[in-house]
């Protein structure tokens, strides 16, 4: 417990839980804002409910997975090129 208290307030589990709650509330509010705010969608898909939210989430998950897969093939230890230094 003592170790917990000496931690910076920002990294205590309680703060992190609060941050997650706050973050979730903001996310929910932003999606709900779509019911009141109507832009001028340029493309059909853009007009779907919460487009920017689900599109951002989905494409980011996809990018992380693609990076992970590419990494399996192309990752090397960071000493890979060290033998060209005498």
């Amino acid at each position: 417990m003592a170790a917990q208290e000496t931690k910076h307030w920002l990294v205590r589990p309680r703060t992190i839980r609060l941050l997650w709650i706050g973050f979730s509330v903001v996310l929910a509010a932003l999606v709900l804002a779509d019911t009141f705010v109507h832009g001028h969608p340029s493309f059909g898909l853009e007009g779907t409910f919460g487009f920017y939210a689900w599109y951002g989430l989905a494409t980011c998950v996809a990018m992380v997975i693609v990076a992970k897969l590419l990494g399996m093939w192309l990752k090397r230890p960071d000493t890979h090129y060290d033998d060209d230094i005498d």
């Binding site: 996310l27 804002a33 832009g39 919460g50 920017y52 939210a53 951002g56 989430l57």
Partner: peptide, 10 residues
């Protein structure tokens, strides 16, 4: 709103 959605969900 759109950009905040995009970025925060990212």
């Amino acid at each position: 709103v759109n950009m905040l959605q995009l970025l925060l969900f990212s």
